[in-house]
Design a binder for these strands. Structure first.
Lengths: 257, 257
DNA sequence: CGGACCTTTGAGACGTGTCAAGGCTGGTGG
DNA sequence: CCACCAGCCTTGACACGTCTCAAAGGTCCG
């Protein structure tokens, strides 16, 4: 609960949001104003036993049989894949309020893993329960659909990042996206420091670059767009020039307001 | 109807598959054996007015309001995005039997376009009708879910291609994947030429490389894995060494048999 | 206080992009 | 039926950005 001088909170001791502030509800609400029953259903979905894990721990591993869906309550996680020779690709980044894989249980085996990027709190929702909620709440079901379509859109944008954008554009775009998504769930405010647990190696494995190069890019990003980076913290001082550098257009995130 | 000496068929004159051979049904069947009612429903979905278009024409453009889903009957199409300065990224390739965007109509606007890579035949299914079919056929609904989860998995694999694999591995992997998918819908057989309408520029825009480099890579691919390429046609003579070059593992395609 | 993990910095190699010219091929129109 | 043209592919030379490898410094946690 205490906050350190630099605005960070000590590791592993950040409090879990109360139900009233659930990031999940904030996020679905950004798609369409939820009715009271839908909101209540969303709250109930998240109101269950909290699990926790440390940075680097897998929530699910490649080859596992997927039985349920994870909802991130607090902290960051990622979806990733490892090639035979050890190369790692980060396929998605999850922040509080994000849902991992609506409906994966249709598949036989996971083709990738999900692990914690920071100390993490999450809940697990079983297939059956998920289906009951959707059947009983068409509006919630639609909101969950929307969330999964947005994830797919982000996935596509990441391909554009890796394949078309210059490294400088790509890193700026990634920061823009995360900053935007954090704002939606009220975890970032203009000009203030944000909790940003990606290491340079994580960013490298996200964009397909090398860690030393990320180090140099972050220095340039600071010079050209006043992005102050240090381990676990980031401040965006000049959002306009950052967006300009990235060629960022938030339409692909499909937020209506 | 005629077939040219090299195994290709003349452009724009390839016959449309009869219902009995529907690639769409073949594909869903590869997930789980469909019951007769589910199979009949799938056939009915595809049995409607055939639309056609030429290479380069858009079926849907970025910014359009998505109202319906497209099912590819014959020919290839792609999903793509264009950046402000003209760079193009191909985000997905559709072959016969593929469905574009189950449930997109939840979103307000398309964030990308879909266009034909070759002369194309497709059908359009409206939201309402799609929902009716799913409500009435849980097994079909589940199969469509599976298809959309597989598309998402392919999307992730393409990020690995662009970000982690060497250009040689990436192009080999792309060929492996398309060859595999074509086999599922019975459009390719071992050692025989396949219809392959991607130009070198298309491949470049898929993998994030340049067209001259694709030219050189295809020559190396021919040398190392006996992949015979020429415009609109490709023959895989040595699938094993191709897979080896690519580090290809088909698990991510989630075919059960 | 010690150690693991993360970041910074440097020098050199190499792969891929860029630019450009020329050749081929299939489809179109005369 | 032939000629032409647009689109597509091949090839070459050169530049440059990013990777590789490596060593050292910093910081947080136990």
């Amino acid at each position: 609960h205490s906050v350190m001088a630099d605005g960070r909170k000590p590791f592993g001791r950040r409090e879990v949001p109360t139900l009233a502030l659930l990031h999940f509800v904030e996020k679905l609400n950004a798609f369409a104003a939820l009715t009271d029953t839908a909101r209540q259903a969303a709250v109930t979905l998240a109101d269950r036993h909290h699990r926790t894990c440390h940075r680097g721990e897998d929530l699910i591993s490649e080859g596992d049989k997927p039985r349920n869906v994870q909802l991130i309550i607090d902290g960051w996680a990622c979806r990733y894949k490892i090639l035979e020779d050890g190369r790692r690709q980060i396929l998605a980044i999850f922040i509080p309020g994000d849902l991992c894989d609506l409906n994966v249980y249709i598949l036989d085996r996971m083709d990738h893993s999900i692990s914690a990027i920071s100390p993490l709190t999450y809940v697990t929702i079983e297939q059956q329960e998920m289906e009951q909620f959707c059947d009983g709440n068409p509006q919630l079901a639609r909101a969950l659909w929307w969330e999964s379509l947005v994830s797919a859109s982000i996935q596509r944008e990441w391909l554009v990042n890796a394949a078309q954008r210059t490294p400088m554009e790509a890193i700026a775009h990634l920061v823009c996206e995360l900053y935007f998504r954090l704002r939606v769930v009220k975890l970032a405010r203009k000009g203030e420091p944000i909790f940003f647990p990606l290491t340079q190696t994580d960013i490298a494995d996200t964009l397909g670059l090398t860690q030393p190069h990320i180090s140099r890019l972050l220095q340039m990003l600071n010079k050209h767009a006043k992005v102050a980076w240090r381990p676990r913290q980031l401040i965006v001082h000049d959002e306009d020039s950052l967006r300009h550098l990235a060629g960022f257009n938030p339409d692909y995130l499909h937020f209506r307001r």
